[in-house]
Amino acid sequence: MTKHKQSQGIDRSQTVILLKDLYKSFGELDVLCGVDLEVYKGENVVVLGRSGSGKSVLIKIISGLLMPDSGTVNVLGNDVSKLNSKDLQALRLKIGFSFQGSALYDSMTVRENLEFPLVRNLRNLSAAEIDKAIREVLEAVNLEQTMNQMPSELSGGQRKRIGIARTLILKPEIMLYDEPTAGLDPLTCTDINDLINEVQQRYHTSSIIITHDLTCAKSTGDRVAMLLEGKFLREGTFEEVFNTEDERVKSFFDYNFIQ
């Protein structure tokens, strides 16, 4: 049975991500139609929604990879759409982004993947400090033995873990997970869910977890927000969202249970 998330260490007086009235379209397609969201320090917010509902677009806007058509994106006190490239780079050092396909640099070994963001952003680190940081994050994701392997030699779950380790090496304050359990077997999904919770506890991160996996939502989310038709239709604990009377939300849960 899926474990319930025990919410702790959330500071509701401190907002780390604040989205207000966010709109984003691609040509004729309206993806986000007035999205509002607030994420508190130390909180894991799960964004549930169907494929193509704009979940990934949402976190790409938060990280500055995409710009909204209108609305406010405030991350750690910075209005993302008004930052110049230098300030955006500085903000990105505080945001970890775990991609759906892991996005490991396939021409580099695991070690080089981890080393790459570190040496490029903190240029005066000694070799010993770099080595220590790499070992620390590999230990955190429990994959010390893969250090000299190429990404192509890793399993899907291992790739996800290394992807997360690569973001952790910069010690981010915010983690954005894009479909962390997509394409993985149930046991590996459980491992990844546990890892997300471990990261929250160990690194004191606030996170947005994009998923359509209910098990992942239930075990990692302190709060769940349901993104349908371009806006959040329901927000609350997993049970609150699950027990809603809104037919559109219920149909999403019914479909997922049938699956």
């Binding site: 790409k60 500055g64 990105r92 050092l93 991609f99 996005a103 490991l104 396939d106 910069l170």
Partner: peptide, 21 residues
């Protein structure tokens, strides 16, 4: 092919979000 592959597998985005140009 190399950059195209990096683009479609989001490796270029991964660099960008790691504050690398």
């Amino acid at each position: 092919a190399e950059l195209g592959s990096m683009k479609v597998t989001e490796q270029i985005d991964a660099m960008e979000v790691s504050a690398i140009n």
